[in-house]
Write a protein that binds this DNA or RNA. Structure first.
Ligand SMILES: [Zn+2]
Ligand SMILES: [Zn+2]
Ligand SMILES: [Zn+2]
Ligand SMILES: [Zn+2]
Lengths: 131, 131
DNA sequence: ACAGAGTTGACAACCGTTCTCAACTAGCCT
DNA sequence: AGGCTAGTTGAGAACGGTTGTCAACTCTGT
C-alpha cells in the first residue's frame, strides 16, 4: 500500500492484498484474488478485498477494466498513462503507450467542441504462445 | 429488424424495440428502453428487450458499451467500424473514425506477436451545451 | 490502560441480467 | 378453415458480481 492518507492503516489484510497484486501480471477478478489469498494462507474477507482494490484503483496503483460480460478485473500497473494489449485466451498483458493516439483523441474531441477529455483504449488479441 | 435469418419472425415486440432504438441518439440501458416502450404504449417484457438487444448487437445493428459501473448501454449505430465521443453528462454521442488508430493498434499487436486483433476505444468529454 | 477512530468479515441486500417454462403466435401444409 | 409445429413471449425465479450492515476487533496516540 503506497498511498498513505491521514488515518490509513497498513493492516495485515491490506498488505496481503498488495502482495497478491504483485504476484501476477495478468488481469484478475476480485474473487480470483480472494481465492488466491485463501490458498496462500492469508485469508482476507471478500468485502475487504473489494474495498482494498477500490482504494488502490482510486490511488492509481491498480488498473481496472471490464470483461466482455461486465465483470471487473484488476492488475497492478505502472503509474503513467498507458493502455493494454491483452491475450484473449490466457490473459497475458503488455502495457503500451501511443502518444499519437493521445493527441488524436484530444483533437477529435476538440473538433466537436468537447472538453475535459478522457478515453479508454484496450487491444485484444491472441498472444504468441496461444496461437 | 434488418437481419432476416431463417425462421426469424418480425414480431410486434421486435419491431417495437427496433423502432425505440431509432428514436434516440444516445446510449441507453435495457431497462431504460423497456420503460420507454411501456410509456409509449407498446409494452414489451424485459426479458424480450434483453433478448432482442442481444440479437441486434450480434447482427451489428446496435452498439453495446459499458458504463463505469459495468452496466450495458445500447445505441443504434452505423454498420461500419467506428468509435464514440460521448458526453459524460448528457450522453450526446458522435461517431468517429480514425484510420491511423486502426493501423496503430494492428502494428502494436504485431510487434508483440499478437494476432487476431480487435480493440475498444471510447472518448469521453463534456459536450458544448453541457459546458 | 484507555479512548476513539479506523478496519474487518459473515451475512444480507442489491441490481442487472439470464433462465425457466407454460401459454401464445406466426407461418405453412392440406 | 383447421391444424401442425417451430419460434416467441413474459412473469417470476434464479444467478452472480458487488455493495451495505454492524457488532466485534485492532491500531495509535495519550
Ligand atoms: Zn495468451
Ligand atoms: Zn491513452
Ligand atoms: Zn452533453
Ligand atoms: Zn477502431
Amino acid at each position: 500500500m503506497t498511498s498513505t492518507e491521514p488515518g490509513l492503516r497498513p493492516t495485515k489484510q491490506r498488505l496481503a492484498v498488495a502482495a497478491a497484486m504483485s504476484s501476477f501480471e495478468d488481469f484478475r477478478s476480485a474473487q480470483d484474488i480472494h481465492e488466491l489469498l485463501a490458498h496462500r494462507g492469508d485469508p482476507v474477507g471478500l468485502a475487504t478485498v473489494y474495498r482494498t482494490l477500490q482504494r488502490m484503483v482510486d490511488a492509481g496503483e491498480v488498473d481496472l477494466l471490464r470483461t466482455e460480460d461486465g465483470e471487473a478485473i484488476y492488475r497492478r500497473c505502472s503509474d503513467t498513462h498507458h493502455h493494454h494489449l491483452v491475450c484473449r485466451d490466457c490473459g497475458a498483458t503488455v502495457e503500451v503507450e501511443g502518444p499519437a493516439v493521445e493527441r488524436w483523441t484530444r483533437a477529435i474531441a476538440g473538433e466537436h467542441g468537447y472538453g475535459d477529455v478522457s478515453h479508454t483504449l484496450e487491444i485484444f488479441g491472441t498472444c504468441p504462445s496461444c496461437r
